[in-house]
Simulated assay, not measured.
Amino acid sequence: MSDAPRPPAPDTPTVPPSHLGTRLNWLRAAVLGANDGITSTAGLVVGVAGATTSRLAILSAGIAGLLAGSLSMAAGEYVSVSSQRDSERAALAKEQRELADDPEAELIELTGLLSDRGLSAAVAREAAEQLTQRDALRAHARVELGIEPDALANPWHAALASFASFTVGAILPLLAIVLPQASLRVPVTFVSVLCALAVCGWLSARLGAAPPLRAVLRNATGGALAMGVTYAAGSLLGAVAA
């Protein structure tokens, strides 16, 4: 048998981030959305609790904060992902035109890109020819643009995911502040929120393959600071109003 290097399988040099990686990105975004819901709603309701003991006032403020935050995140995510998808579609259309106008130049370009990834010139050329024969646009989209043509981001999915994750996170401090008796509301909320933020920090660190302890401490410290500042501000306003 010949010892000459064999061309890799046509898809080998062009594999984009895997579907598993995409799912992990979505999961990480969901964790961060829940984290935002916990922190912002906790700061809001604890601040109101510092100013008044009225369960209705605290609940009203918490629900308003939950809706405002979740809708804001959903709208922002929709706009952001829509812009990203528009850019990806424009890049794919431009690449399609270039392939139609000068396919040989595009083949040379693809060969160079594959060669830059460590393939020899001969192997890169062979792989580029096979990929071009199979699906030229997909090959250039993956290698040159880093885009998976069949998996463009869906802005509605992103918006709904952000809305849901923020809402789920916001429910915890809202329940923690309105269910206990007045004297226990703030302590119960502080403990519940810090535990939830520690879990979110641990999950985000694990998903990002980062050391969890630092993320947990950073998350919990930020949440404690937010609640402490808003509670102090609410208490001061409540004292002035009284």
Rank of each mutant, 00 (worst) to 15 (best):
D3A: 13
A4E: 14
R6P: 00
P7D: 09
D11A: 13
P13Y: 07
T14G: 14
T14S: 15
P16V: 14
T22N: 13
T22M: 13
W26F: 14
L27W: 08
R28T: 12
V31S: 01
G33Q: 00
N35D: 04
G37A: 07
I38Y: 06
T41V: 02
T41S: 01
A42F: 03
L44H: 07
G47V: 05
A51I: 08
A51G: 14
T52L: 05
T53K: 13
T53D: 15
R55Q: 15
L59P: 11
L67V: 13
A68S: 11
G76T: 03
E77I: 05
E77P: 07
V79M: 10
Q84T: 14
S87M: 15
R89F: 10
R89M: 12
K94G: 09
R97H: 12
L99R: 07
L99A: 08
E104I: 07
E106G: 02
E106Q: 13
D116M: 13
A124D: 01
E129S: 11
A136E: 11
V143M: 02
E144Y: 01
L145Q: 04
A159V: 09
L160C: 11
A161N: 10
S162L: 02
F163M: 13
A164P: 08
T167H: 08
V168F: 12
A170P: 12
L172A: 07
L175C: 11
V178A: 00
P180H: 10
P180E: 08
Q181H: 14
L184I: 04
P187I: 04
P187K: 05
V188Y: 04
V188D: 05
V188E: 02
A196S: 11
A196D: 06
W202M: 15
S204W: 03
P212L: 08
P212Y: 08
R218Q: 13
A220T: 14
M227Y: 03
G228W: 00
G228K: 03
T230I: 07
A232Q: 09
A233E: 00
S235G: 14
A239Q: 12
A242G: 14
